[in-house]
């Protein structure tokens, strides 16, 4: 579980996060949604330790980050898996080497044991058979799956995903969403996902934080988000024609 309390963050005097409070629950897919510039990525980077909040506390399983010793911070970073928007796979390494990388950096096991784990994870994300290919030789969806495999290979406690299905066709996007949800349950981890995609909200939105202009404007789950009358949320959700039609039908009681 990750709890953020009263998080403030400003850049060049401009406040991007204005006191965010939220609990990201363990074993659930926690979604941060909101328009571009609402502060989603900054909040994620604060949780990853890439930015230090100007004010407020981030607690990992009840312990504030500010109270972590250097060794504990190092351990924490080993417990974090991250799926980047573009995959962020290492171009010079094969699929197998990309997934092996975190294990190689942080464990002292023999290569054969490490490879067993790599193959197990690649099989889990349905990528067995692509081990020797380079990132440039596989599709966007496969790259995302490699990125997920790399993120979970060390058995992390926290999984962060920055728009994991951006640039993917709807079918592949759903596959990725479901994969992340299955992994969250299977590994019983705290998963935090940034997304703009309302299909993802529908599929895996178990705990949703809606940010607007650096403020937590709404929170709830996927069932509540499509029923809420809160205008800031409905403006965002029903901005696409498809969801507008769904909303009209809903209001007409169809």
């Amino acid at each position: 579980m990750i709890e953020v309390k009263n998080i403030h963050k400003a850049f060049d005097g401009e406040e991007v996060l204005k006191g965010i409070d939220f609990v990201f629950e363990r074993g659930k897919t926690n979604l941060i949604i909101g328009q571009s510039g609402s502060g989603k990525s900054v909040l994620l980077k604060c949780m990853l330790g890439l930015f230090l909040p100007d004010q407020g506390v981030i607690e990992y399983d009840g312990k504030p980050y500010t109270e972590f010793s250097e060794d504990e911070k190092k351990d924490l970073s080993k417990q974090i898996g991250m799926v980047f928007q573009g995959g962020a796979l290492f171009d010079s390494m094969t699929v197998e080497e990309n997934v092996l990388f975190p294990l190689r950096m942080f464990t002292k096991q023999s290569r054969s044991k490490l490879m067993t784990r790599v193959n197990e994870v690649l099989k889990r994300v349905n990528l067995d058979g692509s081990e020797k290919k380079y990132p440039s030789e596989i599709s966007g969806g496969m790259q995302k799956r490699v990125s997920i495999a790399r993120a979970i290979v060390n058995r992390p406690k926290y999984l962060f995903c920055d728009e994991p299905n951006s640039g993917l066709d709807p079918k592949t996007a759903t596959v990725i969403d479901n994969l992340i949800q299955e992994i969250t349950r299977e590994y019983d981890i705290t998963t935090v996902i940034i997304t703009h995609d309302m299909n993802s909200v529908l599929e895996i939105g178990e705990n949703i934080a809606f940010l607007k202009d650096g403020v937590l404007a709404w929170k709830g789950d996927k069932d509540q988000v499509f029923k809420t009358e809160d205008e800031t949320v409905t403006d965002f959700i029903y901005s696409s024609n498809l969801f507008k039609k769904v909303r009209t039908a809903q209001l007409k009681g169809l």
Partner: peptide, 12 residues
């Protein structure tokens, strides 16, 4: 391509 961020997040 965020590969440097990926290294930092891994604690490298």
């Amino acid at each position: 391509t965020e590969q440097i961020d990926a290294l930092e997040v891994m604690g490298i």
